[in-house]
Design a binder for these strands. Structure first.
Lengths: 154, 154
DNA sequence: ACATAATGGTTGACATAGCAACTAATATTA
DNA sequence: TAATATTAGTTGCTATGTCAACCATTATGT
């Protein structure tokens, strides 16, 4: 449980070379992490995308959509539609910037913040578990490597 | 760009806490990697999901759909529909297992293998670039960590 | 000023994601 | 052996991903 001993790896999950494929490895790791998070979010009936948007806005409210899309890793067309339903659900509010009427400023509502607050404890618990099982140093190392990879010029 | 109350906003620069969020970090890193791959695949008009399926089948032909879904990190309902169009395009073939008529055995066609072959050089080039820019040791370390994370009991 | 380009965002079309309900075939159990 | 459960896959529904075309607004070049 401490070392990635190859002999301890179940033979049934032998994926050959694809297991060393970076895109697939990133995908598999993410799917693994998202299981408990999706379970958590299902109680509020919001998607993981909506959760990302709320967290981004909670950190820096009053953002333009392009900035949100970048921060939450969403395509602008997707964001347009997601925000539309989130606005209808009263989680966010949108208003056009009067100085530059192309821009739209999105703010999180009290209800949006309340939703985040309701899940904060469980969210922290999930990641505390990951940290405990996986190890804090390795987690930090992984985050560093991911951040670096994302900034790599390809 | 000025905020009315800077103290209410954690950071003016983007992504404070979300930059250390594992799901988002995994997503961002993956999106970064996929840019040149999507560009490559667009020349054949196939999706990254179809590419994953072809690569999995190329490694171990004659798989059942559940196994493919697991290996290619796809939902079974998605796989059903994707395979349907791939079969129509002549990239794969499906036949029901006569021993257990619930099962379907999927094989890659010559055309499917040819498509992989056409992209193998460029694919290798992309990952050689990543390896060169990011570093071989770090890449190996990252893959090890991702593999380990994916096997972590959460 | 005028035409043109660039920017921010929206919409359309189609493929995939994700959940639930469903069918058909096989296994299990009373 | 009949009833039930399990497994493999399919289908329906809705949301999101992705690309392209588009609109409105602002910036830029001549």
């Amino acid at each position: 449980m401490d070392k990635p001993d190859p002999s301890s790896v179940p033979v049934s999950s032998n994926f050959g070379a694809t297991s060393r494929s970076l895109p697939i490895a990133l995908l598999r790791a993410r799917e693994r992490i998202m299981v408990p998070i999706r379970e958590m979010l299902q109680q509020s009936g919001i998607s993981e995308q909506q959760w990302r948007i709320l967290r981004v806005l909670d950190e820096a409210d009053g953002m333009e959509q392009t900035a949100i899309a970048h921060a939450a890793c969403l395509q602008l067309p997707s964001l347009t539609r997601i925000l539309k339903s989130m606005e209808a659900d009263g989680l966010v509010a949108r208003k056009t910037d009067e100085a530059d009427r192309r821009r739209t400023v999105v703010t999180i509502t009290a209800e949006g913040r309340s939703l985040i607050a309701r899940h904060r404890a469980r969210n922290a618990e999930i990641f505390a578990t990951i940290e405990a099982e996986f190890g804090r140093e390795k987690l930090d190392l992984l985050l560093d490597l991911l951040d670096e990879l994302q900034q790599t010029r390809i």
